[in-house]
Computed example of a mutant assay.
Amino acid sequence: MPNTEPLPPPPAENRVPGVDPRFVPRTRSANFTSVEQYFDDLVHRLLDRLPATGIAGAFAEFVAFVLKQAWACVFGFLLLAVIFAAKLWYPEGAALARNDVLTLSAVAIQIGMIVARLETLRELRVVILFHIVGTLMELFKTDIGSWSYDAAGILRVGAVPLFSGFMYAAVGSYMVRVYRLFDLRFTRYPRPWLTVVLAALVYANFFTQHYIVDVRWVLLGAAVLLYGPCVMRFRVFRRTLGMPIVVAFALVATFIWFAENIATFSQAWLYPEQLSGWQPVSATKLVSWFLLMIISVVLVTWVYPPRRPAERHLAATGLAA
Rank of each mutant, 00 (worst) to 15 (best):
R28F: 04
F163C: 10
R15A: 01
P9A: 06
P10E: 02
F290I: 01
V224M: 13
V287T: 15
P91D: 06
F140S: 08
F258Q: 03
F59D: 02
P306C: 08
A60N: 10
S296M: 07
V157A: 13
G54S: 06
G277Q: 01
V101P: 03
A170F: 09
T103R: 05
V19K: 02
L118H: 13
A316G: 04
L42A: 15
L292S: 01
A64P: 00
L201G: 02
F258I: 14
M1D: 11
A253P: 09
P280F: 02
I245H: 11
K285W: 05
G57H: 08
P25R: 12
Y304E: 13
V127H: 11
E61D: 07
W193T: 11
L121I: 14
Y211M: 10
V133A: 10
I212Y: 05
F166I: 05
Y271D: 01
L129T: 14
A204H: 06
L78F: 10
P17I: 07
F258Y: 10
V281A: 05
T142W: 12
L286W: 09
Q110I: 00
Y179A: 08
T103D: 06
P305W: 11
T103K: 02
F65A: 14
L299F: 05
R308P: 02
K87N: 07
W217I: 12
K141N: 15
N205V: 07
R28A: 02
V246M: 08
Y168A: 12
P25H: 10
V133T: 08
F237K: 03
F32Q: 03
A321N: 15
T27E: 13
Y90D: 04
E138K: 04
P25L: 04
Q69E: 09
Y227K: 05
T301P: 01
F166Q: 03
